[in-house]
């Protein structure tokens, strides 16, 4: 028997300082300690969303969906619309550091994401335009004619 194996070795100090890793360790510690107690509010406490931030804006004639997607290329993005459900799917990649590079600090996330949002019923899913520029996705969806807000002049007799 190898005696060295009897000694629990300390985990090696991480060579990179990653705040989220530290949070993850803390969460695991929490779950290990309090896991059996089943705190309903504890799960997800330190989870962070791996997804883009979006805005959904209803204008007079169209619906705008805006998403901040820095580093996402057109080819890695997939948009679909079904009825009034819009799905934004994609993958955020990062140039992998070469062997000689040491990562000093990471505050950004990479990976695949998917987000489905409910559009107002007034949308016309046939008329959609999307543009990705400077890391911002802009989707314009027309409203149905009857849903457009228009001012009607009423003459008073």
């Amino acid at each position: 028997m190898d005696h060295a194996n009897l000694v629990t070795r300390k985990r090696q100090a991480p060579t990179t300082l990653d705040l989220w890793d530290a949070f993850d360790d803390l969460r695991r510690e929490f779950e290990r300690t309090f896991g059996d107690l089943e705190f309903p509010s504890v799960s997800g406490l330190l989870d962070w969303p791996a997804g883009p931030d979006i805005d959904l804006v209803e204008g007079d004639d169209e619906i705008l969906v805006l998403a901040d997607l820095p580093g996402v290329r057109k080819g890695d993005l997939e948009l679909s619309i079904q009825g009034n459900l819009l799905t934004i799917k994609g993958e955020k990649k990062r140039e992998e550091p070469t062997q000689s590079h040491k990562v000093v600090r990471t505050e950004t996330w990479v990976g695949s994401f998917s987000r489905t949002i409910n559009l107002p019923d007034s949308v016309n899913p046939e008329k959609v335009e999307a543009e990705l520029r400077d890391g911002v996705l802009r989707i314009r969806i027309a409203k149905r004619e009857e849903a457009k807000r228009r001012a009607v002049q009423i003459s008073v007799k």
């Binding site: 901040d68 990062r94 590079h101 600090r105 990471t106 505050e107 400077d134 890391g135």
Partner: peptide, 22 residues
């Protein structure tokens, strides 16, 4: 802006996420 910083002996590379900036 969130950043990733990496380095080697000859250079330091900082990548910052700044969507919407030209």
């Amino acid at each position: 802006p969130p950043a990733q910083i990496r380095e080697d002996e000859s250079e330091v590379i900082a990548q910052l996420e700044m969507p919407g900036v030209t």
